[in-house]
C-alpha cells in the first residue's frame, strides 16, 4: 500500500496552533516527539505506564477514530491535568485517514 501522510494540528495550552504530518500507523505521540512539539512528555515512550502524553481532541475527531481501550481509560483516571470527555493518551492514537485535520490540544501540565 502506498504510504500516506496524515495532516493534523497540535494546539498548545496557550492557544498556539502548529500543523504537522505523520504517516499512517505512527502514533500522535511519536509525531509530537519527531517534530519537537512541547508539552507531551511521554516519559514511558508509549508503553502506557506514565500518563504523561495526555491530550484533548476536538469532539468530531474523537468520535471519528477508534475508541480508547479499557487500560487507556484507566490511565486517563490518573493524568495530571483534568480529564475531559475527549481526553486521550497520544501514544495510543495511531494515525488513520479518519484523523486528517484533527485538532490535538495539549494540556497545561503533564505532571
Amino acid at each position: 500500500m502506498e504510504s500516506q501522510n496524515i495532516k493534523f494540528q497540535f494546539v498548545s495550552a496557550d492557544g498556539e496552533a502548529r500543523d504537522v504530518e505523520g504517516q499512517i500507523g505512527e502514533t500522535v505521540m511519536e509525531v509530537a516527539y519527531a517534530t519537537g512539539i512541547k508539552g507531551i512528555a511521554a516519559e514511558c515512550g508509549g508503553s502506557m505506564s506514565c500518563g504523561t502524553c495526555h491530550v484533548f481532541l476536538d469532539k468530531a475527531s474523537f468520535e471519528r477514530i477508534e475508541a480508547p481501550s479499557e487500560s487507556e481509560l484507566d490511565m486517563l483516571d490518573i493524568v495530571s491535568s483534568d480529564r475531559r470527555p475527549t481526553s486521550r493518551l497520544s501514544c495510543q492514537i495511531k494515525l488513520t485517514p479518519e484523523f486528517v485535520d484533527a485538532e490535538v490540544h495539549i494540556p497545561e501540565s503533564q505532571y
Binding site: 508503553s47 502506557m48 505506564s49 506514565c50 500518563g51 487500560s71 484507566d74 490511565m75 483516571d77 490518573i78
Partner: peptide, 15 residues
C-alpha cells in the same frame, strides 16, 4: 511479558 506485568504494575493499581 510487559502486557502481563502491566495488568498489575500500572499507576492506578500502585496508587
Amino acid at each position: 511479558i510487559r502486557t502481563h506485568v502491566q495488568g498489575f504494575l500500572n499507576p492506578k493499581k500502585l496508587l
